[in-house]
């Protein structure tokens, strides 16, 4: 049932791209409604379209057709230049490969979104996030001095330091062992429950997906089951 007041409302979203002479239908008329505070796991085989869907939702990629309402505002045709400001305001991103800057310390990596938003003076905010994520004792370490779990926690801290309402995590546990993966999901749950952050997470792990409030199954670019 579609709710026009949803935080995110996707209607018949399609995404096509060309590979040589072939047209690939990465997403086919996807309809999805996401509410504030949702913690959704997107599951499906590789190539099912879950990452493409997250990219479209997070404004990293544009859909080919369909409607995308973000907090009631149509954003499907918003150009990249304006998306920068939407991303700053609405989204935090966590990637499978962490993408931390190797020459910057944990604290400096976390500070990046605030620097780009011109809010680098919020040092208390950085410190609080570090404490919450449990990395305050590692704040002056370089990423090369951290474990995989610590690196992903740093990436999560970087994704939430500017208080985004939505956190997009594309296979955040893909490079982690099960112990660290569980820890990361526990952190997501805390962020979801304590700060009401809407979390959209692509994962292959059914055990982790079960901890989410909703599971969306993707197959061949369509929503197969919810």
């Amino acid at each position: 049932m579609k709710n026009p007041n949803s935080l995110i409302l996707l209607t018949k979203i399609s995404k096509n791209y060309h590979r040589g002479n072939e047209t690939v239908h990465a997403l086919q008329e996807v309809d999805l409604s996401i509410e504030r505070g949702d913690f959704i796991a997107f599951m499906g085989a590789s190539g099912s379209g879950k990452s493409t869907l997250l990219n479209v939702i997070g404004g990293l990629d544009q859909c080919s057709s369909g409607s995308y309402l973000l907090n009631g505002v149509e954003v499907s045709k918003v150009p990249e230049k304006k998306w920068i400001y939407l991303r700053r305001q609405w989204f935090g991103y966590v990637f499978q490969s962490f993408h931390l800057i190797p020459t910057l310390t944990v604290k400096e990596n976390i500070e990046l979104p605030l620097l780009f938003a011109g809010k680098q003076k919020l040092q208390d905010k950085i410190h609080n996030t570090l404490v919450e994520i449990g990395l305050d004792h590692r704040m002056n370490h370089l990423p090369s001095q951290l474990s995989g779990g610590e690196m992903q926690r740093t990436a999560i801290a970087r994704a939430v330091v500017h208080n985004p309402p939505i956190l997009i995590a594309d296979e955040p546990t893909g490079n982690l062992d099960s112990e660290n993966a569980t820890m990361i999901f526990r952190l997501f749950q805390t962020l979801n429950q304590k700060h009401n952050i809407t979390i959209l997470c692509a994962t292959h792990d059914p055990a982790l997906a079960k901890q989410c409030s909703r599971i969306v199954l993707m197959k061949d670019g369509t929503m197969w089951e919810e």
């Binding site: 997070g58 990293l60 230049k81 920068i84 400001y85 991303r87 700053r88 991103y93 990637f95 993408h99 800057i101 990046l112 979104p113 780009f116 938003a117 970087r158 500017h162």
Partner: peptide, 16 residues
């Protein structure tokens, strides 16, 4: 390239 793409995802403008 990847790093800059990530920075753009974090809200960096081309100008920055």
């Amino acid at each position: 390239r990847k790093e800059m793409g990530m920075m753009k995802a974090l809200g960096a403008t081309s100008l920055q």
